[in-house]
Every structure is written in structure tokens, then in C-alpha cells.
């Protein structure tokens, strides 16, 4: 994936779309492309989260284990992402993520994001605004 394609992918995401293009460019410099085959486990439930995965192509099954049984929660598709809170805290993953078919991701690691946010606080601020907006929307949906 060429650098511009990373920027295009990041700009399409609601998570980053409110950021300025120069900020998205900065984020693209810390985003790396990762490719996995079918059935690859991105992370297990209980792992410490330290990466944000952006699905560029393919699908990811989100599975949760309860009382010894595995439940399918949701399927994350192209132009969606998983693990955004991992960019800001080191809580454990609440579900397992498994690739369905050949998948390409853009991956951002927490350490890189922290360093970027330290150098460019405007990015962190913009990112926090987007997260808060998402949380508000989720709360509104719940109220409805």
C-alpha cells in the first residue's frame, strides 16, 4: 500500500475523518500494513490491547466466550476498525478477533500514537473529540 492509499483509507474512517488532512498524514506515517490469512487470530479475549486495527479488505469475526461457550458478536468489515480504545489505555480485550478470509489491515500501535500525540497535541485533541462524539452517539442510541 503506497503512503497516499494509507491516507485515503484513514480519511474514510469516521474515527479520523474529523481530523485535518495534515494530521491524518502524520497518523499515516505510524500506520503499518499487515496482511493475514483466513482464521488468523488478531487477538484473544483477555489479551492486553495495544493496537488499533483498520480493516482495509476482508472481514473479521468478533467472538466472545461466556460460560465455556463461544458467541459471535459482530462481523467487522472493510473501512471499519476495532480496538480504538487500545490507543489510549491498556485494558484487556473483551473479545477475540478472527480473520475471515484473506485480510489486509492498517495497524496503529499505542506507543507510536502516544509519541505522536506528545509531539502534536492537536492530533490527540482531535482524536479525543471524535471518541467523545462516538460515545455520545452510542449513549443517544441507548437512550432511544
Amino acid at each position: 500500500m503506497i503512503p497516499l492509499e494509507k491516507i485515503i483509507v484513514l480519511n474514510r474512517l469516521p474515527l479520523f475523518s474529523a481530523l485535518k488532512t495534515e494530521d491524518i498524514y502524520m497518523i499515516s506515517t505510524i500506520a503499518s500494513e499487515e496482511v493475514y490469512e483466513d482464521q488468523h487470530i488478531l487477538f484473544y479475549q483477555g489479551d492486553v490491547g495495544d493496537k488499533l486495527f483498520i480493516v482495509v479488505s476482508g472481514k473479521v469475526q468478533i467472538l466472545q466466550e461466556r460460560d465455556g461457550k463461544q458467541f459471535h458478536l459482530v462481523t467487522v468489515r472493510e473501512n471499519d476498525f476495532l480496538g480504538e480504545l487500545a490507543l489510549f489505555d491498556a485494558e484487556t480485550r473483551t473479545a477475540t478477533a478472527r480473520c475471515e478470509g484473506h485480510c489486509t489491515f492498517l495497524v496503529i500501535e499505542r506507543n507510536d500514537m502516544e509519541q505522536l500525540a506528545h509531539e502534536y497535541p492537536a492530533i490527540a485533541f482531535g482524536f479525543i473529540k471524535v471518541l467523545i462524539r462516538r460515545m455520545r452517539e452510542m449513549m443517544k442510541t441507548r437512550e432511544l
Binding site: 485515503i8 474514510r12 488532512t21
Partner: peptide, 13 residues
């Protein structure tokens, strides 16, 4: 095109 939204955003900025 895939780049259209990005170009529009840059122009607006």
C-alpha cells in the same frame, strides 16, 4: 474515485 473525498477535504481546508 477513492481519492475524491480526500481532494474535496483538502480544497475545503
Amino acid at each position: 474515485s477513492t481519492a475524491k473525498a480526500l481532494v474535496e477535504k483538502i480544497l475545503q481546508e
